[in-house]
Design a protein around this nucleic acid. Structure first.
Lengths: 142, 142
DNA sequence: CTTGAATACTACGAACTACGTATTAAACTG
DNA sequence: CAGTTTAATACGTAGTTCGTAGTATTCAAG
């Protein structure tokens, strides 16, 4: 298959430039905003309950100590708990608290509203085509 | 026009989740990586030569002092110069140095490679459709 | 022309984040 | 049971953002 044309690439660049400015979540909830990584951690822990800091660090490609600090922050805010499982007492099992779960749910809801707004300008048929192409791009191997 | 379906929204969410992980530029060039905002500033200054820090701050929605610190960093690295125009000696005119210009060009080239990779999995006809939909989404008013 | 307000920006400090080094504690290994 | 490996944390350093308080310059009356 032929390469994308320069014009296609340039137009995509321009569109994504606006796109990235436009679709950005302003922080939800009370108090000081969480750091980006903290939100990622909450979502990761929701999807992988009882995982350890090492899993999270490997998954995000950041230093272990960064995750340690971050989980500390999140624990202090009452969004995350660190349990000591009995089968390996060196390890820590991360889990969301009730507040953490509701924060994560709010956050996710806000994202869904944003995604809905993305699709709004398109016709129903275009929406299917767009989502399909996005999926194709995201899942394409090499 | 009807609303996007829940399934469309969920599929888009999943695709964009992968998408955002996959298409992320690892920093280019030598030395310590620039902060995100610093790269934005370089591109903004390239597009708006002789603009002032106030313009940049308003455009990005950050505090003036943040831009001041950032331009200071960039000037120390030799990527940006701060000129005192003679018509208003309070003001500062930002301009890229030769190094700043080449850094920005490299950065932009890397982006183009990334955008080309995004379009690669699509057929030529799909590419046009995709870019058109992206443009429609980005430029849609309210 | 001078005085007061407005404008453009910078210096400094407080609060916070990322991460390297060193350390603790627990689990393997021979 | 000593030595090593593994999981995580404590602490310190460097770097970032942004608020407060300046400095310098321009504008606007009187």
């Amino acid at each position: 298959m032929s390469d994308p044309t320069d014009e296609q690439v340039a137009d995509l660049a321009a569109a994504l430039d606006v796109f990235s400015r436009r679709f950005k979540l302003t922080d939800v909830g009370a108090g000081r905003a969480l750091a980006e990584i903290d939100k990622h951690i909450l979502h990761y822990v929701e999807a992988h309950p009882d995982c350890g800091p090492t899993d999270v660090a490997r998954s995000f490609g950041v230093a272990m100590t960064t995750i340690s600090s971050a989980t500390d922050r999140l624990a202090k805010r009452g969004l995350l708990e660190r349990l000591r499982p009995s089968d390996d007492r060196r390890a820590v099992a991360l889990r969301l608290t009730a507040d953490g779960t509701s924060y994560t749910a709010d956050h996710k809801r806000a994202y869904m509203v944003m995604f809905r707004a993305m699709l709004a300008p398109l016709s129903p048929a275009e929406r299917d085509a767009f989502v399909a192409m996005m999926t194709k791009i995201a899942s394409y191997e090499s």
